[in-house]
Design a protein around this nucleic acid. Sequence first.
DNA 1: TAATTTTACTTCTAAAACAAAAGTAATAAT
DNA 2: ATTATTACTTTTGTTTTAGAAGTAAAATTA
Lengths: 140, 140
Amino acid sequence: MDTKFRSSCPISSALDILGDKWTLLIIRDIMFGKKSTFKDFSSSGEKIASGILANRLAKLETLGILHKGKLPDNKKTVIYSLTQKGIELLPIIVDMILWSDNNLGDHVDEKMRELAKKIKLDKEAFINNYTVHLRSVMAW
Amino acid sequence: MDTKFRSSCPISSALDILGDKWTLLIIRDIMFGKKSTFKDFSSSGEKIASGILANRLAKLETLGILHKGKLPDNKKTVIYSLTQKGIELLPIIVDMILWSDNNLGDHVDEKMRELAKKIKLDKEAFINNYTVHLRSVMAW
DNA sequence: TAATTTTACTTCTAAAACAAAAGTAATAAT
DNA sequence: ATTATTACTTTTGTTTTAGAAGTAAAATTA
């Protein structure tokens, strides 16, 4: 189940990890949806199948993009959180938000278009500030 | 063969279009590899199968991300070029280069690490300048 | 404390997508 | 006129995905 790299191209290699319809949605849910458990991810609007979700979570943990942890008083619930490597995916996701806002605009959710508007005021500042926020929520 | 959107989330919608291992590699080849023909894309290092290539090119043209054209004196060769919508994918690709450089660094091609280094000096400037370059090569 | 529910998965099967190889039609070069 | 090239299409076998159902451990409820 490990990731194979097709070449030494950084774009190709990023796609070897991120290039599917679900991986970045899990990252999105943690980054912007305050989600952290298997159940949380399962209940997202796009209806990911549980088998695929389990597969992607395992991959992301193996790759060091997610950290798998527990809360001290609960032995059942598994908490997934972003590592630094995961937090650094923020710019990619932000650029996807902007690209969709510019190019698929009429079909995008209004709440998200507001966010896009805000990001456009100062993208670099948004990424810096939001990165600080994500680090403050990080497990370690 | 048309693209269906799973939700009105801009990230999900971007992934409905870009979320696979090949689509952005074609964009990369046009943006950074001076490639423009079916044969050019076929000969890339990652060895895309011809059926998948044909499928992706058709999709990207339907979506208005690529333009399908010909040269005046050649009836055989098909020239694919980026539209404005396609050029606007540059930030996403640049961020993938940077993420891979930072997080998969040791396995990334040295030439590309040089590019990453250059981009890091001033990302916004690089994107602006390179966008101008891409627009100058654009078909219309 | 016993029964029920919840959580985080795993398993199964059918459908869809993909990979590799081979084939084709039109055009271009020799 | 023959051969090669380009841009695909087709075919077949394999892998991945989607959807439904099942399971084990832990937590909650009666």
